[in-house]
Design a protein around this nucleic acid. Structure first.
Lengths: 243, 243
DNA sequence: GATAAGTTGATATATATCAATCTTTGCATT
DNA sequence: AATGCAAAGATTGATATATATCAACTTATC
C-alpha cells in the first residue's frame, strides 16, 4: 500500500524545509512559479506527500477526487481505460509535472487513470486551494490556463498522429517522445513493458515489437535488454513525418 | 470576402445595444456569464463582429492570431490539417461557443483551422483583454479554465473513440453528436458533405457512405436528400458502445 | 521451476484505395 | 425563367493492404 509520509518528513512536510521550494527551483516551467512565498505556503500547508510503489494506482478513472498531483520523483503513466478493455496511454508524467484531472472545477470525476511505472513520490494538493489563489494571483490563473492549453494542443497532436500515421511513424513518435521529453538522453532504460509501449503507440504489442526490430535492423536504434539507444534520430524523425 | 460590420450596426457594435448581452442571455453556459456589466463593456469595446460566408476560413492553422472567437450565428468546423493532406474535424462550433485557439497565452500560433460551414456571424475579441479581466474577476478565470478542461476531456474521449472503435461505432458517434450536441432534434439538415462527415469520423467518405446506408437499411436512421433523421437512437448508442 | 514478458510466423479482417457510375448543383446562355 | 452543361458530390463495387489475431516458442524474472 502507498504510505503517507507524516509531517516528521523534514525534507518535505512544509514549504521552507525543502520539497516544494526545491520542486519549483528544479523545474523552472512549473506552474507554481508565479506564486509568492506566502501563497505557496498556503497551497502546501495541508498537502500530503505520498509514495507509490511500481504498479500502484494513483488516480482511478471514473472515481471522484479533489486532488491535483505534483510529481516529485519517479514516472507514472496517464492512461484512459476504454470500454473494450484496451488502454490508451496518453502521456508519461515525470518529476515537476503538475497533473489536474478532468474533474477539476468540473464535477471531480476523473477522466483518466494514473499509475506508477516506477516508485513515485508525489504531492496531493486540495484543488479547492487553487480557486482561492486565483483571486489573489491572476498570473497563476494564466499559467494554469496556459498549462491546460498546451495539454490540449498535445492531445490534438496525438489525435492526428494516432489516426493519420502508419505504425512505423507512431513507433518513431513514441521513441522520440521518450528520448526528448522524458529521459533527455540518447540511451535510456525503459521501465515500460512492450505492452505499455504499444499502448502509447496505439497498436498491439506484437506489431510494436516487429517495428522496433525493423528499426534495429536499419540501425536507427540499438536494443540491449531494457535499454534502448537512439542511434539515428533524424531517420526516426523522417519516419515520423511521412507517416 | 468576409466583411466587417462597422459600429453603425445597432444590434451588435456595443454592449448594451444587443449582441453581447443577448449572446450571454441566450447561451447560459457561456464563459462570459461571470462577468459584471462594466467588465463585459471593457471586453467588447473594441471587438469586431465579422460575417463569414460558407467555406471561408476564420482561423488558419499555423498562423498567428491574438483573437478569441465568440460564435454568434451559424456553424463552423474546427479541424486540424495533417501533414498527409487529410483533415481531422475535431468539433463543430455553434452559436454561443467560445473558441480559444491553441496559441492563447502560448505564442499566438493557432494549432487548428476554423472555417464556416454555413454563413457565420462571430465576434473577434483581443485575447490580451482576457488577461486583464483575470486580475479583476477570478470567477471568470475559473470558468475559462473549466471550459478548457472540458475541452481536454472531450479530446481525450475522441482520442479513445477514434483509436479503439470500429467504423460503425464512429459513425454512430458522429450521428449522435450531431443530434444531441449540435441540432438538438431527431431530424436535421446536414450542412456537411460526406467527405466532412467522414473527417469527423476518421474514415474515408466511401466507408462513411457504406455504413450510413447500413444504418438506413436497419431502420436506425432515414435519409432524404440532405436531411438525416434519427429513428432509433438506442440502437445507435448500442453500436457506439460495443465499438 | 513457474509465471510473466518478449519474439516470431501464419492467417484473418477491417478498412483504404481505385475505378466507374450516378446525382445534384451552379452557372452561363438563350 | 428555362435550358444545357460542367463541376462537384454521392454511391457502389472490386481489389489491395495495413494491422490485428491466433498460436507457438523463447527468454527473463521472482
Amino acid at each position: 500500500m502507498a504510505k503517507i509520509l507524516n509531517s516528521s518528513c523534514d525534507s518535505c512536510s512544509k514549504y521552507g524545509n525543502g520539497c516544494c521550494k526545491t520542486c519549483i527551483a528544479e523545474h523552472k516551467s512549473n506552474v507554481f512559479a508565479p506564486l509568492t512565498d506566502p501563497e505557496l505556503e498556503f497551497l502546501v500547508e495541508e498537502k500530503k506527500q505520498i509514495i507509490y510503489n511500481k504498479g500502484e494506482t494513483i488516480i482511478k478513472q471514473n472515481t471522484a477526487s479533489t486532488y491535483v498531483i505534483c510529481m516529485n520523483d519517479g514516472l507514472a503513466k496517464v492512461y484512459v481505460e476504454s470500454d473494450n478493455g484496451k488502454n490508451v496511454i496518453v502521456r508519461i508524467a515525470k518529476p515537476g509535472d503538475f497533473i489536474t484531472g478532468g474533474g477539476l472545477f468540473n464535477g471531480s470525476v476523473q477522466h483518466f487513470s494514473i499509475s506508477a511505472i516506477t516508485k513515485v513520490k508525489c504531492c496531493l494538493i486540495d484543488s479547492a486551494k487553487l480557486t482561492r489563489l486565483f483571486a489573489e494571483n491572476s498570473d497563476f490563473a494564466v499559467t494554469l490556463l496556459r498549462n491546460h492549453i498546451k495539454q490540449g494542443n498535445y492531445l490534438l497532436n496525438k489525435l492526428v498522429n494516432h489516426t493519420q500515421k502508419y505504425m512505423p511513424g507512431r513507433v518513431a513518435d513514441t521513441l522520440l517522445y521518450l528520448k526528448n521529453d522524458i529521459f533527455n538522453t540518447d540511451s535510456f532504460n525503459v521501465p515500460l513493458t512492450r505492452q505499455e509501449l504499444a499502448e502509447m503507440s496505439n497498436m498491439t504489442k506484437e506489431s510494436f515489437v516487429r517495428i522496433l526490430h525493423q528499426f534495429k535492423d536499419s540501425k536507427a536504434i540499438s536494443i540491449k535488454g531494457d535499454t534502448i539507444k537512439i542511434l539515428d534520430e533524424s531517420s526516426l524523425k523522417t519516419i515520423s513525418k511521412n507517416g
